[in-house]
């Protein structure tokens, strides 16, 4: 399977120049743009959008950090500076609907931008995948078979508890005819991967264990072949955990978008 995109990813600037408007803006996010592992997920989201023929665009170099990590760290100034600059760009393009590749961007744009003048319909990519499945536009055929494979799904805090999105990612997995196993702590009781609240960008405080190890141990208890994620930060934390547990050969950490793309041979 080629990782390369065999199509152009349209930017808002290009679309507008052609006098066109997208149905949906794909907000890639910083991790999705720069982090090598997350870039794969980003490309897979584009493949899905392209595959179903949804007219989309990205902001490209006009995108900037939503301000989420600054806000969680307590720097409201920096957050609002970022937010207002982004809102100016989004409103300038008359954006109505946004899909994000990251629960943190999703939460921030959906919940915290409206109060600053940026109101959009915001969905997370797992919700988009669920909608496409529900509409019959996306199936699980023509690609890798996940039939019978043991998959456990890790709820990202800002998608699950933060915004009560528990079913969409599971829906996306259910169509695979795989064997879904829940961890002991799941859904509203899910355990954080350890990266939220700006922890991604700092060393953890002194303790007797790293949070991602606690989480991956719980995931491994389910004997999974795949640990499914839907957040680039969780992806990093869980992948690191699997590596540290020497399980990289047996257990893959994959984003829901990657799984969906693979199942459809994209």
């Amino acid at each position: 399977m080629s990782e390369q995109l065999n199509f152009e990813v349209p930017t808002m600037a290009e679309l507008i120049a052609k006098g066109e408007e997208p149905e949906i803006l794909f907000w890639v996010g910083c991790a999705g743009s720069y982090d090598e592992r997350a870039q794969k997920t980003t490309r897979d989201i584009c493949k899905i959008l392209h595959h179903v023929g949804l007219k989309y665009a990205v902001l490209g170099t006009e995108e900037s950090c939503t301000g989420d990590p600054a806000k969680r760290a307590g720097n409201e100034f920096l957050f609002q500076m970022q937010a207002m600059t982004n809102i100016e760009v989004l409103n300038g393009y008359n954006i109505k609907k946004i899909v994000t590749g990251c629960p943190h961007c999703f939460n921030t744009i959906k919940n915290e931008y409206p109060g600053l003048g940026g109101s959009y319909e915001v969905i997370h990519h797992t919700q988009l995948i669920q909608q496409l499945i529900d509409e019959g536009k996306l199936k699980a055929e023509g690609g890798e078979s996940f039939k019978g494979k043991k998959i456990t799904y890790h709820d990202p805090c800002y998608l699950g508890r933060g915004n009560d999105v528990y079913e969409a990612p599971r829906k996306a997995l259910e169509v695979l005819d795989a064997q879904l196993v829940e961890m002991k702590r799941c859904k509203s009781n899910g355990l954080c991967c350890g990266a939220g609240g700006a922890q991604m960008f700092k060393e953890p405080e002194k303790g007797n264990k790293d949070i991602n190890i606690e989480r991956i141990e719980e995931a491994l208890e389910t004997n999974p072949q795949i640990v499914a994620a839907s957040c680039p930060f969780c992806m990093t934390m869980l992948s690191d955990g699997v590596k540290l547990k020497d399980q990289s050969e047996n257990v893959k950490v994959l984003d829901i978008a990657e799984i969906t793309a693979r199942a459809n041979g994209l």
């Binding site: 910083c30 720069y34 990590p69 600054a70 760290a73 920096l78 970022q82 700006a198 991604m200 960008f201």
Partner: peptide
Amino acid sequence: MMGNIENNGAPW
């Protein structure tokens, strides 16, 4: 991280 956001528009 915050310096990076200020200068580069990304936490890295």
